[in-house]
Design a protein around this nucleic acid. Structure first.
Length: 198
DNA sequence: AAACAGATCTACT
DNA sequence: GTAGATCTGTTTT
């Protein structure tokens, strides 16, 4: 562990491999059902598109760490850093289902149905208790841990389509989910999605 | 010191 | 389906 040979490839190749993996923090664990690939410096949709900054530094590091970012004034989202060190590839954790610690998860998200607990990237982080302080966390050591599925998902069970809510490069089909799973989040196009970039 | 961006969510119709 | 919330963290000057 800590080596993550499965995470070394291109983001769009590694992303489906994360479906069915378990993300654990404390007593709550989520099984991933939906992810998105971000290719780094050459991907207009990536935070790393304009190069390395303090915020994006973790993405340029080795695979197997957690990249967390803050958005819309109140939300935290998390990615698994993939690819070789020096590149900025990452996979956004978009949705999953709670498989452990349901009692704690419910307390964190009062009034929310079990189905919606981790149905969306910011919801997933809130349910797991992931905060900006977890940025850079080694996923082999914790506090946030990643446990890959023993075997990759059957390609027949994986669906793909455009990434959710991007203004730039809105049409790259780099969102992957387990077909038919109820915990997958709904697709929404960015209101100002750029019509020309791919 | 100031402007900006934002890979969302919730509520409401 | 649409609108508004919400406001920090990041980047730039």
């Amino acid at each position: 562990m800590g080596d993550w040979p499965e995470l070394r490839g291109a983001a769009e190749d590694v992303a489906p491999r994360l479906l069915g993996a378990i993300v654990r923090r404390g007593s709550v664990a989520v099984r991933l059902t939906e992810v998105e690939a971000y290719a780094g410096e050459h991907d207009p949709g990536s935070h790393a598109y304009r190069g390395r900054t303090r915020r994006t530094a973790v993405m340029f590091g080795p695979a197997g760490r957690l990249y967390c970012y803050f958005s819309y004034g109140m939300h935290v989202c998390a990615n698994v850093v993939v690819g070789e060190e020096g590149t900025a590839a990452a996979v956004l954790l978009r949705a999953g289902e709670v498989v452990e610690g349901l009692d704690v998860a419910r307390e964190r998200r009062p009034g929310v149905s079990d189905r919606d607990l981790a149905r969306g990237p910011a919801r997933l982080c809130r349910t797991l208790g992931i905060a900006l302080a977890d940025d850079g966390c080694d996923l082999a050591r914790g506090p946030v841990r990643l446990e890959l599925a023993a075997t990759p998902p059957d390609p027949a069970d994986v669906a793909s389509g455009p990434r959710v809510g991007l203004r730039l490069a809105p049409d790259r089909p780099w969102r992957f989910w387990l077909a038919g799973d109820r915990s997958v989040s709904p697709y929404r196009r960015h209101p100002r999605a750029d019509a020309t970039s791919i």
